[in-house]
């Protein structure tokens, strides 16, 4: 149990650094242990405190299986029914901002993961986080900064191009 806990904490700290980006979108991270821990932050790094959470079971994706709210740190914990394998969907929403996260839960493999080597389970979790919309979280702040700078230079270049003909 102890190493598992440490992995969880390690992941949380890694994700905490990653989420310090810009803008108003929303980021939802999760780790799979016995239960599933949801960590919802705005991408300013601010936690989504007391946001509403709805969990949908794989066999019925239209009726809520469970509803709740995140705590002050934007965390939410639920234990999926291991009998239902498939994609559990978790919707987090607050003031018109939010996201739906799909969490694959393999019911039969639950006991296998207990013995799975720590590094592989960690990379799996990280990969799933990075697989979010546009893969934006996989980019470092530097990469984002360079991309933003390139776009800005594109606009300035356009301005210079059209200003050139006048003189």
């Amino acid at each position: 149990m102890k190493p598992r806990l440490m992995i969880l904490l390690g992941l949380l700290s890694v994700l905490g650094v990653q989420s310090r980006a810009i803008a108003h979108g929303v980021e939802i991270n999760y780790q799979t242990t016995e239960a599933i821990a949801i960590n919802a932050t705005y991408d300013t790094g601010e936690p989504m405190a007391e946001a509403q959470v709805i969990v949908y079971a794989p066999d019925d994706p239209s009726t809520p299986w469970m509803t709740g709210t995140t705590d002050e740190q934007g965390r939410f914990l639920f234990a999926p029914d291991r009998a239902q394998s498939g994609n559990w969907e978790v919707a987090v929403r607050q003031a018109g901002h939010g996201e739906i996260l799909s969490i694959p839960v393999d019911g039969e493999a639950a006991s296998e993961t207990e013995q799975a080597p720590a590094p592989s389970s960690e990379t799996a979790a990280v990969e799933q986080t990075a697989g979010r919309a546009n893969n934006l979280d996989a980019l470092s702040p530097l990469q984002k900064g360079v991309m933003g700078g390139a776009v800005l230079w594109g606009f300035i270049g356009t301005a210079l191009f059209f200003a050139r003909g006048k003189k």
Binding site: I22, A23, G148, V151, F155, T158, A159, L160, F162
Partner: peptide, 19 residues
């Protein structure tokens, strides 16, 4: 096209303002 330089620069400002 006369106003494109102005529009382009302000688009850049708009792009960055949301940050």
């Amino acid at each position: 096209t006369a106003d494109i330089p102005k529009a382009s620069l302000l688009t850049a400002a708009f792009f960055i303002a949301s940050s």
